[in-house]
Design a protein around this nucleic acid. Structure first.
Length: 479
RNA sequence: GGUCCCAUCGUCUAAUGGCUAGGACAUGUCCCUUUCACGGACAAAAUACGGGUCCGAUUCCCGUUGGGACUACCA
């Protein structure tokens, strides 16, 4: 109720968060988790969830990735509150430069013309002396005027870090973290290509977008003091910070390509449902109060809070994802599963007339949607198998043939319109119980599926129909 | 190397000083069963180590060890 009122009156405490990826490729699992926690926090608190594109590194730019990232967020179900008005940093270079100049004016920053070679050499030397590799401070003392270099030689603008005192980051997840300012480098704010670095653009944009909470990955924690100093230099109030634990590979290193699939769309192609992925990443580093693990989108929104976010990194366990995925496959409406299957196997695939029946037949045994095709292959194509497969345990092969013939006789009498699971069961089960279930049902099932594992024979017959069933049994008998 | 973060079953986690450290995934056994699944039951499995504080520590403090992040004109 309170937050409702605040929203109406544009209260000062309104929650606004952002997801700010660099368009260097696909949205990966780690990014999706960061986005999701931001999203959950925004929705839980009646706030806004905004996207911003941090494309100030012109070299790592991958064309098309902005659209891919947007599409991935959409597929997962995280709708943006600034759709169509996404801030793109490369379109704002003038603004950043103006702000950098402002700091220059206030002597909170300085022009630096040190070459990259010199910087590298300096760093190496300091490493040798066992000191942290920092900028030598050469130009910090020189005081070069912008007019001396503008248009004449390459330069950067560096931030003039205070060299004494400590600065404390109040992290919503970790508590207070203290940093010694003398150990923080004079960060470059404006690069020689005219683009800002992350640190500058990030602070300016968060301010401009009125971001209330910066929720980002733990790797950013060490640069947060730099941002805090920047806020102070500009005379701005800093947002609140929360640094999320990392998502790790099974070997506890940072999750990367060499560990297999990392992109959200890769998981889509692998047959995972978005609900399962969301549930899974939601549980990495967060857990609701109760002992529930299968949580819908809405439930997670309702229960999310930063207090319950874990501090330590979480290892990505694909087995648990598989389990969650199977849970969602069991529950999903046929229409949704069809849509997802179409995304993987193409639209023609789901146009087959048996598809609805097969989905219901196999949903309990699928871990991933990709299992579907192979699992149901035999419905469309005559199975190929060795006659030995028709043997039930220790019974002789002859017995299988014998029983198949008897089954054939019994089902021949069934009217084609009555050829369904219930009817078949009522006719064949008494017989199977009398002879021995395995001796009747195993060879029957194999003759129809050609596989050692499949749905039950009555299910298969119900789908195949009378004609095809009889055909397959006859083929088995000729083996 | 320096700075910072972190540490409960194999994995994700619950328990923020107080019953036999709980749940889930995975694993194993059993039941159900024509097979594979599904479902059900049970089992095994953890507070990294060492010091404190306290009547009492998973929990608070210190150290050790281990893991991780950062240390770019990348984000």
């Amino acid at each position: 109720m309170l937050s409702f009122l605040k929203n109406i009156f544009g209260g000062k405490n309104k929650v606004i968060v952002r997801f700010a990826p660099s368009p260097t490729g696909e949205l990966h699992i780690g990014g999706a988790r960061t986005a999701f926690f931001n999203y959950l926090f925004a929705r839980r608190n009646g706030g806004k969830f905004l996207l911003r594109i941090e494309d100030t590194d012109r070299e790592r730019l991958v064309p098309g990735s902005v659209d891919r990232i947007k599409a991935a967020l959409k597929w997962l179900g995280m709708e943006l509150d600034n759709e169509g008005h996404v801030m793109v940093q490369s379109e704002r270079v003038d603004i950043y430069k103006k702000r950098a100049l402002e700091l220059l004016e206030k002597k909170d920053a300085y022009v630096c013309v040190c070459s990259k070679e010199k910087l590298a050499a300096d760093q190496e030397e300091q490493m040798k002396m066992g000191r942290p590799p920092m900028y030598s401070g050469h130009c910090r003392e020189v005081g070069i005027k912008i007019s001396e270099v503008e248009g004449k030689e390459p330069y950067v603008i560096r931030m003039k870090m205070p060299k004494i005192g400590k600065i404390t980051v109040h992290d919503l997840i970790r508590g207070d973290v203290e940093f010694d300012q003398s150990l923080i480098d004079d960060q470059v704010l404006l690069k020689s290509d005219g683009y800002p670095t992350y640190h500058l653009a990030n602070v300016i944009d968060d301010r401009e977008m009125k971001i209330s909470h910066v929720i980002r990955a733990e790797e950013w924690l060490p640069s947060t003091p730099k941002h805090l100093v920047l806020y102070k230099m500009f005379g701005w109030e800093a947002p609140k910070f929360a640094h999320l634990p990392m998502i790790l590979a099974p070997d506890k290193s940072k999750l990367s390509k060499r560990h297999g699939a990392t992109g959200v769309f890769e998981y889509k192609q692998l047959g995972y449902l978005p609900e399962a992925i969301l549930n899974f990443i939601g549980l990495m580093g967060w857990h609701p109060k109760e002992d529930r693990e299968v949580l819908s989108f809405k439930e997670m929104i309702k229960e999310f809070s930063l207090d319950r976010v874990q501090k330590g990194g979480a290892i990505f366990d694909v087995k648990k994802l598989n389990w969650l995925n199977s849970e969602y496959i069991k529950k999903a409406p046929v229409s949704e599963l069809k849509k997802s299957l179409a995304d993987i196997f193409g639209h023609d695939f789901i146009k087959k007339d048996l598809i609805d029946k097969l989905i219901n037949l196999s949903r309990d045994r699928m871990e991933k949607l990709t299992d579907f095709k192979e699992m149901n292959e035999f419905f469309f194509n005559l199975p190929n198998y060795e006659k030995q497969l028709l043997v039930w345990k220790n019974s002789p092969l002859e017995k299988s043939f014998e029983n198949l013939k008897l089954v054939l006789e019994k089902i021949s009498e069934i009217n084609e319109n009555d050829f369904n699971k219930a009817k078949l069961e009522s006719i064949l089960m008494p017989f199977a119980n009398e002879i021995g279930r395995g001796d009747v049902l195993w060879p029957l099932r194999v003759s129809l599926s050609g596989k050692d594992k499949s749905p039950g024979p009555f299910d298969i017959m119900g789908v195949l129909g009378k004609k095809e069933t009889i055909r397959r049994i006859n083929i088995a008998l000729e083996k």
